[in-house]
Design a protein around this nucleic acid. Structure first.
Lengths: 122, 122
DNA sequence: GAAACTAGTTTCCCAAAGGAAACTACCAAC
DNA sequence: GTTGGTAGTTTCCTTTGGGAAACTAGTTTC
């Protein structure tokens, strides 16, 4: 490997680390994955639906997390012209691209449970 | 969908959520992904190597995170018979299976940066 | 006009996460 | 015997994350 290749390789490394940071920052915390998961499974959901669907979350946290997801263009927020007003939350097209990531994380978790957690109990 | 199917579907849902929790618990925090990433790229690394390689980490955190990764059988710790003693950390076979997860997270982060972060600057 | 639903916000508090610096302990080289 | 390398641990402190409950505000139904 010559100097140019090493420099490029190092740059790739840093870029990759940065990319991992980007993703994890958007999805860090106790609730983001669960909210995205709920929206992935049900499509559109209103605030109160999410409050019921995401087990254990408080209104404050739901509100805060939805804001952050909206700012990052992963979730859209639509105020409906109903009485009383309802608000629909939905994954954006960009938000839907998280499916592959979430599937991998889920698959690894299942495998880990089979390989490590279950055998430990016996 | 009959009652049995609904029950099974709901059980699948819960299992999937649990799997996501399992994975994220093991890899939560500011440093775990970076440590695993460093070991994935370099193979074996000693404590001081990691301290230098993982940018910004303090000895306390590195020590704590390595313990947790070791307990969860993702990283192995080998004391070498050298003077002064050195310790080699390495991903276990199980730890190496994280590669697909990390690749997806990295790929999504890169795409996100191209789609959302870069255009915002212009 | 009181109760109940919508969608949040605000306040106050606690626990967990994380950082900086000092410290232990062993060994080698100078 | 002092400096410097190995691999950590300990202490003390600040920041962040998160939870419970009360509160705003508009609308509808009884």
């Amino acid at each position: 490997m010559n100097k140019k290749e090493r420099t490029e390789n190092s740059a790739e490394c840093i870029k990759g680390m940065q990319a991992i940071n980007d993703t994890m920052q958007l999805l860090s915390g106790k609730w983001k994955f669960k909210i995205v998961g709920a929206l992935m499974k049900h499509g559109k959901l209103r605030f109160m639906d999410l409050l019921r669907e995401v087990d254990g979350i408080a209104a404050k946290m739901l509100s805060k997390e939805l804001h952050e997801l909206e700012i990052n263009l992963l979730v859209s927020r639509t105020i409906m012209n109903t009485k009383p007003v309802t608000v629909e939350y939905e994954l954006t097209k960009h938000g839907q691209t998280l499916e592959r990531v979430i599937n991998e994380i889920e698959a690894w978790g299942l495998a880990h449970r089979k390989l490590i957690i279950q055998p430990m109990k016996k």
